[in-house]
């Protein structure tokens, strides 16, 4: 598994209502890099979600389309939904992409690592915020 940075400790963040207002890294993400993460099957988004990715032939239908997510949610709301969606809905199948506690039997290759690094979270947030068309 490449891509996710190896972090012994995750960066701290503050949740306000249903959102994480501040960037995890303190910097804005890069929407172009965010798009490449979203369509890369290794990062799992397209296994469940579809979206405005004409070049991607196989997209999942377990979860809502990512189209329009930038119109439905603020960047702060998108950030919490990526970081730890289970905090908003314990029954969701959406993985917590920036969390390493509360998991069971994580395979050796992935143990102690979040699915996405803080930088990758910010890139994806920045990209999803651009998806304004439903």
């Amino acid at each position: 598994m490449s891509g996710a940075a190896c972090c012994d400790e995750l960066l701290p963040y503050e949740v306000v209502d249903d959102a994480i207002p501040a960037s995890l890294t303190g910097a804005a993400g890069d929407p172009a890099r965010g798009r490449s993460i979203v369509v890369n099957r290794q990062f799992t988004c397209l296994l469940c979600h579809s979206g405005p990715f004409a070049e991607q032939r196989f997209q999942g239908d377990l979860a809502p389309s990512l189209a329009g997510s930038g119109a439905r949610w603020s960047e702060a709301q998108l950030r919490l939904r990526l970081v730890d969606a289970a905090r908003l809905n314990a029954a969701t199948i959406m993985p917590s992409y920036y969390r390493i506690d509360g998991q069971q039997r994580v395979g050796d290759a992935w143990r102690g690592k979040p699915i996405l690094s803080a930088e990758q979270i910010e890139d994806v947030v920045a990209y999803l915020a651009t998806l304004r068309e439903p």
Partner: peptide, 13 residues
């Protein structure tokens, strides 16, 4: 011919 990409493969380990 359109070839489906496997969703989960053992190579993922």
């Amino acid at each position: 011919v359109v070839v489906t990409l496997a969703a989960c493969t053992e190579e993922a380990s």
